[in-house]
């Protein structure tokens, strides 16, 4: 009888491949490492949004929203689309025929997403520093918010990947990204949206994540209340992974 391969060895090999493949896909680079920094530069330095110009440096107000966008682009769009096509091409099925446990595959995917997010955060903070931002606020709370957001958006991405056709997941993830970018409290705080829209938008995971990040990183500014936003974010972080787990089909 053969001895089992150590799980840690599998996890390392699988994570390294997942990470390299994410960086090899042009559309994934575009959405994760080009779009968020480009929007930060554009709205932070080139054409500041009017609402941001009032409250000091635009970059201070922009940064939390762009960090939320970065999480959304990696955990929902990039992960969701790549996993959808891996299912479509039978990659997930084939891996299921090896000794690699499903849980290790999933852990490798989440670790590779976190690795990309680290790259994003470093890149965005570097740009923000150049634009005059200075570190302030509660880093620990911001980090926790990013992790919760990763769970919430990763759950949405894997839900699409595991139960939608690959083409539908591709279209769906991109459409949702654009929708949440505009109406989900990313650039325009929910409080500045018209009344009824604001009520709906404040329940969205993007608004909740952006609001918690604003609370953490913008001390003293017109920061939103922490607890309603945090509660919404935690709820999404529990519900969407659960939904994905219940509906995921491997082939």
């Amino acid at each position: 009888m053969r001895t089992a391969t150590p799980l840690a060895q599998m996890l390392l090999a699988q994570t390294s491949v997942e990470f390299r493949l994410l960086l090899r896909r042009g559309e994934s680079i575009l959405v994760t490492l080009v779009v968020p920094p480009a929007l930060l530069v554009f709205f932070g330095a080139v054409v500041p949004l009017p609402s941001h110009a009032e409250s000091g440096r635009p970059v201070d107000v922009l940064l939390p929203g762009v960090l939320a966008l970065a999480v959304m682009s990696t955990a929902m769009v990039s992960l969701g689309i790549s996993a959808a096509f891996e299912r479509h091409y039978g990659v997930l099925k084939r891996l299921g025929g090896t000794p690699l446990p499903r849980s290790v595959l999933l852990a490798a995917k989440m670790l590779s997403v976190l690795a990309i997010e680290v790259l994003q955060v470093v890149l965005l903070l570097a740009i923000a520093l150049l634009l005059g931002w200075r570190p302030a606020g509660e880093a620990l709370l911001a980090g926790a918010a990013l992790l919760l957001g990763t769970a919430a958006f990763g759950g949405i991405g894997l839900w699409m990947a595991g139960s939608w056709r690959a083409e539908a997941a591709l279209a769906g993830a991109n459409a949702l990204y654009l929708l949440l970018l505009l109406l989900g409290g990313i650039f325009v705080p929910v409080s500045s949206l018209p009344g009824p829209l604001a009520a709906v938008a404040s329940l969205l995971p993007s608004a909740a994540l952006a609001d918690v990040l604003r609370y953490a990183l913008l001390p003293g500014a017109a920061a939103p209340n922490l607890f309603p936003a945090l509660a919404v974010l935690v709820a999404w972080a529990i519900l969407t992974p659960l939904l994905a787990a219940l509906t995921f089909r491997w082939e």
Binding site: R2, A13, V17, E86, L100
Partner: peptide
């Protein structure tokens, strides 16, 4: 760990190179 299989088609990451795929699978055994 004791079986090897070949699906009728597909089953490999589109962007992976042959040696990377073989090294990845080798790490499972």
């Amino acid at each position: 760990p004791r079986i090897g299989l070949m699906l009728q088609q597909g089953g490999v990451y589109p962007q992976i190179r042959p040696l990377e795929a073989l090294r990845l699978f080798a790490s499972f055994y």
